[in-house]
Amino acid sequence: MPLALPVGSPDGLLIETSSRDFIVYEQRLAPVHQRQVFFHEVGHFICDHPTQEVMNTGVTQQLLPSLDPQLVSRVLGRNHSHSDEEREAEYVGSIIGRQIGAWSQQRLRPVPPGERELVARLSALEHRAQREKP
């Protein structure tokens, strides 16, 4: 869900509730960056990364009385540093994004008649290189 997030906040958040989960990302990012942020948050979800306590229940209830303290902890409690979990989420998100991009890109392009022979030879080289990969 794209939203205008406050300045200084993360570019994306995975919000887990008892009934539904949400991914929020900064709507002012470039579309390619929005997509990466979204898949990064999906990576946290897939890897079931734990959150950390960021405020004790009393402080949370005083500052944010209308919000469930566990919800606040789940949203704000994930480690937003260069931790193993962040690297793992980025890696998983990159793999998912790359695969979805491969599925969604149209692979066939119209080729002018005079260029078909050259395109066929270049395509044969590309397919051979793909077959030879370990």
Rank of each mutant, 00 (worst) to 15 (best):
S104H: 11
V24F: 15
V92C: 05
V37E: 06
L71C: 06
F38I: 10
S73N: 15
G77N: 04
S73F: 08
S94M: 13
Q70G: 13
C47V: 09
I23M: 04
D68W: 05
G114C: 08
S94T: 12
A30S: 03
S9H: 08
V24G: 02
V111T: 12
R78W: 07
E41T: 01
H82D: 12
L63A: 05
D21K: 05
I96L: 15
L13A: 02
F45W: 09
V72Q: 04
M55C: 03
L118Q: 12
Y25P: 00
H40K: 04
S94W: 08
G114F: 08
V72S: 07
D68H: 00
R35V: 10
A30D: 11
R87M: 11
H49F: 02
I100P: 00
T51M: 06
I23N: 02
S9G: 01
R74T: 08
L13W: 15
E126G: 05
E115V: 07
V119T: 09
G93W: 10
E115P: 00
P110E: 09
T17G: 15
L63C: 04
D84V: 12
E90L: 03
V59L: 14
V111N: 10
F38R: 06
H40P: 03
S18M: 13
G12D: 04
T60R: 05
A30I: 01
Y91M: 13
E53T: 10
S104Q: 14
G97L: 03
V119N: 01
G12P: 00
H127W: 13
R98G: 15
R116P: 00
H40S: 01
S123E: 15
R98S: 14
P10M: 07
A124K: 11
E16L: 08
G12R: 01
R109D: 13
E88K: 01
R87C: 06
I15D: 09
R116Q: 14
P50T: 06
M55Y: 06
I15G: 01
S123W: 07
S81G: 15
A102G: 07
P50L: 09
H44Y: 02
E53K: 01
A129N: 12
D48G: 05
Q52I: 10
I46F: 08
Q105E: 07
V92N: 03
D21P: 00
A120H: 14
I46T: 08
Q36A: 09
P50E: 13
F38H: 07
E16T: 11
R116D: 03
Q106N: 15
I95H: 10
E88S: 07
E41L: 00
L64D: 00
S66M: 13
S9F: 10
H49M: 02
D11C: 10
I96E: 00
Y25A: 00
A129F: 12
V32H: 14
Q106W: 08
V24D: 03
R20M: 10
P50K: 09
V7T: 12
L13R: 04
P112F: 14
E53L: 13
A129Y: 12
H80A: 14
E88W: 02
G97N: 15
P6H: 07
P10T: 08
L108N: 07
Q62C: 04
R35I: 10
G8E: 08
S19P: 03
V7A: 14
I95G: 04
T60N: 04
L29F: 01
E117P: 03
S19W: 12
H127G: 04
P31L: 10
S66T: 11
